[in-house]
């Protein structure tokens, strides 16, 4: 059974080196939530049976501290994009997973019981020191396709890179804003669809498509759903270099 999704209690889930259990503790009558991965062990005691439990990916900018609102993915090798060309491929990205209790159909208004990540966390600065952006940092290879075996340590960005200029443009990084980011999942694979439109050799526009073209992927339920604001395109301009 996949780790991600809605589960009934009691619960025992394993994935990679991760073990999550939620069960009644006979001695105290309390419900015990436990997460164990490598040397880390988290225990929470609950006074009632939550009956339902959601294990869902969240926008990967909360850990180790919620100090960044953007994710910068640096490409392990520079991609040279030909004039008026389109590249469709995948990048890896960090994955953060939240545990929510209750909520039979939706998570709106819920606060997570636990939030963790098996991805390595690092931060970087995009732009200058006064007006730049603090970003969560990730380094990724360029992938033609996503692997068939799900890995809980990382997710994927389904990226469409479009060069409408009349020049070759080198691309070494992409900056994704978290506020309008949408996540999709299938079994234990998580995908963030994104589009990067190159404006010139230094500027690019990032947007998120309304739908994911891949079959069987479902949108991740959100505790604070992203709403479309009238008159706000949701596009992000990378103006400190690509």
């Amino acid at each position: 059974m996949p780790l991600l999704g809605r589960h009934n209690t009691p619960l025992q889930q394993t994935a990679g080196g991760l073990l999550i259990t939620l069960a009644a503790e006979p001695a105290s009558g309390l419900w015990l939530y436990q997460r164990q991965n490598h040397a880390q062990r988290i225990v929470r005691r609950l006074d009632t049976d939550p009956q339902q439990c959601w294990i869902v990916p969240v926008k990967p900018v909360h850990l180790p501290k919620p100090i960044a609102q953007h994710l910068q993915i640096e490409l392990s090798e520079i991609l040279q994009l030909a004039p008026r060309s389109v590249w469709n491929g995948y990048l890896t990205c960090p994955l953060e997973i939240a545990i929510y209790l209750g909520g039979r159909h939706q998570l709106t208004g819920s606060t997570p019981l636990d939030l963790f990540s098996l991805s390595r966390a690092k931060y970087t600065l995009y732009g200058d020191q006064q007006s730049g952006l603090l970003c969560k940092y990730w380094r990724s290879p360029l992938l033609e396709d996503i692997p068939s075996e799900p890995v809980i340590e990382q997710g994927y960005v389904a990226l469409q890179l479009r060069n409408d200029t009349a020049r070759w443009v080198p691309v070494s990084r992409i900056v994704l804003p978290a506020d309008t980011m949408k996540l999709y999942y299938r079994n234990d694979q998580v995908i963030v669809p994104a589009r990067m439109e190159l404006l010139d050799e230094r500027h690019a526009e990032i947007s998120y498509p309304e739908r994911l073209a891949l079959p069987d992927f479902k949108p991740v339920p959100e505790a604070i759903p992203t709403r479309k604001i009238h008159g706000f395109s949701g596009k992000f301009l990378m103006e400190a270099g690509i």
Partner: peptide, 8 residues
């Protein structure tokens, strides 16, 4: 250390 930035 995550808090040490990659750039600068």
């Amino acid at each position: 250390e995550p808090r040490v930035l990659i750039n600068p």
